[in-house]
Amino acid sequence: MTTPPPTAGPTRHGPVAERLALHGLDYDVPARANRLDFMLGALTLVSLTLLAVTGIVLTQYYNPAPLAAHSSVQYIITNVPLVTFLRDVHVWSASGAMVLVFAHLAAVFWRRGFRNPREGLWWSGVLLLALLFGLSFTGTVLTGDQEAVEALAHATAGADLVGPLGVPLQEAFTPSTPLLTRLYGVHVSVLPLALVLILGLHLWLIRHLGVSAAGTERALFRSHLRPLGGFALLLVAVVGIFAIALPHGLLAPGVGGFEVTKPPWEFLWIYAAENLLGMNGMLIAPAVLFGFLAIVPISDRQPGRGATVTRVLGVTLFVILVVAIVYAALAPGQTHLGM
């Protein structure tokens, strides 16, 4: 039997709440949704908000022209105290978003939150993950330092591998705008716009399909906002502490044709695949990960053998992902371009 939310019934609202239609928050959700593992998606959204706010400030100082990009980042670091702090918040928020989104993915996978009727919720989440990787990559190349130049070289080599699909990622795509400048446009407009649209769909589906949580106890969504606000503030504090304690550096201006750096941690699993499979690893590893994620709602529709196999495969992939990141972080640097 479902337990009704304790205060279900007429609720009084003040004049401001009435005009803001806050009664719209008085819908009931599973009481278990007040646990941290059900708030990882919302906390990812908090990280994305931090990224958007700090990113808007950074755009006022960053110059996306290839010959000026590096010096503009150097200028931010050495001349503008508030903006250099916000840049560090931006970088750590990006890392935070990636950690949270993977934790969210793992939690939803574990509780099978992708099953009928929530397949669209899962697939929109997978798309959001892909967009986050895109944002992280395009953000990495903007600095124009050695790591950025190598990341860009890998991307253009990967674009070569996928033939016509990769043409927009080639310098020769247009003679009027350098690739770096185009990627900046992608970073600040195309990907955020796509993110907002798919995020809107994701939130719509959550609102109308509900959270997948066991138990019959219900609570009002408003009661969810208090712990969520608490965790959000703690997240902001942690990001701020990291930004102060471990500010993000800048390498020397990048030189093409060399591979002396490793990518940011969120791409190390792809780097590990390149160590093992050459440049094709750059395509094969993401294809395996995203292929698996795409197929999960189909292969695990109901209890049975398919469900067990999917769960075992998912756990195995997750372990491989973590091991690959650790391996790539510890392994000596390797060259992949031209392999």
């Binding site: 050495t78 050695q146 550096g249 800048l250 020397a252 002396v260 640097g333």
Partner: peptide, 12 residues
């Protein structure tokens, strides 16, 4: 090229 960060005097 190197993977060592530049030694920059950070704005503070």
């Amino acid at each position: 090229p190197t993977d060592e960060p530049l030694i920059l005097e950070r704005a503070g």
